[in-house]
Structure formats: structure tokens, C-alpha cells
Amino acid sequence: MTIPVEQAKWMYVTMVKIRYFEDEMEKAYGEGKSPVFNIGSGPVPGEMHLATGQEPAAVGICAHLTAEDTVTSPHRPHHHAIAKNVNLDKMAAEIFGKVTGLGKGKGGHMHLFDPAVKFSCGGIVGAGIPHAVGAALAAKMKKKDWVAVSFIGEGAANQGAFHESLNMAGLWKLPLIIVVENNDYGISVPKSASTAIESNDKRAAAYSNVAGAYVKDNDPAEMYRVSEEAVRRARNGEGPTIIEIETYRYLGHFQGDPELYREKDEVPALREKDPIVKWKTTLRNEFSVSEQEIEEMEKRAKRDVENAYRFARESEEPSLESALEDVFI
């Protein structure tokens, strides 16, 4: 399996866009929160879970998806949303709580919904998996070859919803793919202290018709290849796949996390293996993409992010009365 050059370039530009987006969000979130950190202050209040370092999981599989395929995502959703081509302006505006946001300012960073590209996320660990099962079921009932991808963290594989969903999706051979992003921490608890299996793809053995695959070292190319097979299986009606990818969380569980549970040199060591830096080298060496084209891609990604943040900051606050709307449609 080789990666078409257009896909390799898309993966690069998308990873860069995610990185810019998260870097900008780290700054925006920090506004109004120093010298005293108050979670409710600043232009972006509330919890903030950033995905810096976890880009390969999102782009490796979304490269194989279309707007008709469904993605559900958890509390750390920005990389998935960007890779699923969620409207970047409306997404940024939602995180700033603006009326122009995806949810008119009622959802926020953990609750982004873009039905145009069938993206949703939510703040309850593991809860998006059944929604993906339902999307996969709907695809099957409508006799479409659409697939449903549910991104979760490795901690969510210990939720009942994970096992209930795999049992049902295996039983019904649904086009479901669960991507387990193993960043090694459920907030502060390392996987070794929470999980009685070496890697969660091995849990596929517990259910009929479910395949498992493991991607090590945050590798975009391997994620792409493994996902290609999982998506093929799903579209062909062969059943679900669990993909676990070893990925790296450069930042805390949430912004403001003192991270006392890991050694100070852990993150610098992870950053040494940065997937975007490595992928840039791959583009040059293996795909013969010119330096100039790479620079243009980076500029384009940066411009899209800057435009989105400008749109978000310049947008209006929602009217107070709008808090009473949209309970029922």
C-alpha cells in the first residue's frame, strides 16, 4: 500500500493546520488567566483539552473519509474536527462562545456539531461510541457504503459503552471503526495502572467480526495504511475494526493541569519525535515535494487558522434571550 502524494500533502497541511489551531488556542485560552489562573476568565473560559502532538491519529484515518462518513469525538476534539473538514470559522467562533459558532455559543469546545460533514463530539468518556454505532446502523439500513468512526482515548476502552458497542456492532457487522488514541494518560493515571490489557486493539478478539490493529510511535503513514484497510473492511460490510495508535500528549489533560504525575523530561523527549517534523522530511524525501510547496502549504494552513480566529473574535455575542431557544426544535 502506497500513499498517493495528494493524500500525503493533505495529511501534512492538515496536521500543520491542527498544530497552528491548537497553538493559537493555547494562547487565546491563556488570555485573562494570568497571573492568577481562573478557569472562568478570559475570552475562552471553561475547560480546554488540546490535542497538540496527537495529529497523526486524526489525519491518518480522515484521509479516507468523505463528508458522508460520520465521525464522533470526545472531549479533546479539535484535531478530529479539523481533519473531518468542519467549518473552521464556525468552530473557532463556537469555542469563543459567539453567535456565529456551530452551536450559537451553547456548546463550546467539548460540544461541537457540524452536520454538514457529520461531525459531533461530547464531554462524556466513551459516550460517542454508541452514536457512531447508530450512524453505522443508519448507513446499513439506507444501503449506503458510509462508515462511522469513533475517536476515543485509551481510558474510554474501560467504559461499558465501548464493550456494549463492539458487541452490538460485531453482531450486526456494522461499518464502525473505533480509533483509540493512546496518549498513555487518563488525566493523570497511566494506562499501566488502569488497563488489564497490553493494547486495546487486542480486545477485538473478544467479539466476532471485529478486527484489531496497532500503530506505534504516532506514525502518520502507518495510521494511514491501517485505516485504509479498516475503512475498506467497513465499506465492504465485513465489520468493525479497533485501531489503537500510540500517540503523544504534549500538554496537560487540560490547560492548567500542573502535570505533577509525569517527569519533567518526558514531554521534551516526546517533542523530539514530533510527527509533523518527521512528516515534512518524508514529504521532501519520499514524495519529492519541493521546499517551496511545503512553505505554501504551511502559509495556507496558517492563514486559514488566522482567519478563523479573527472571525471568532470579531463575531457578536449571542443575545441573552437565545439561551431560551433551541431546547425544542
Binding site: T70, T72, P115, K118, S120, A127, I129, P130, H131, A132, V133, G134, A135, A136, L137, A138, A139, M141, K142, A148, G160, A161, E164, S165, N167, M168, L171
Partner: peptide
């Protein structure tokens, strides 16, 4: 049985699946 589906005893999964299917325009 394609439209009247017995489920496993997995209320989280099948109610969640109904939500996911409804979001796709089905009426479960």
C-alpha cells in the same frame, strides 16, 4: 427484522445507537 430489531441487553449501546441513527435522519 431489519426494521424491528431485537438488541443485546445493552441499553447504553442501543439507546446511544438510536441517537446516532436519529442524527442521520432516521426516526428510531
Amino acid at each position: 427484522e431489519q426494521r424491528v430489531m431485537d438488541t443485546p441487553i445493552s441499553e447504553t449501546a442501543f439507546i446511544g445507537a438510536a441517537i446516532g441513527a436519529a442524527a442521520e435522519g432516521m426516526r428510531p
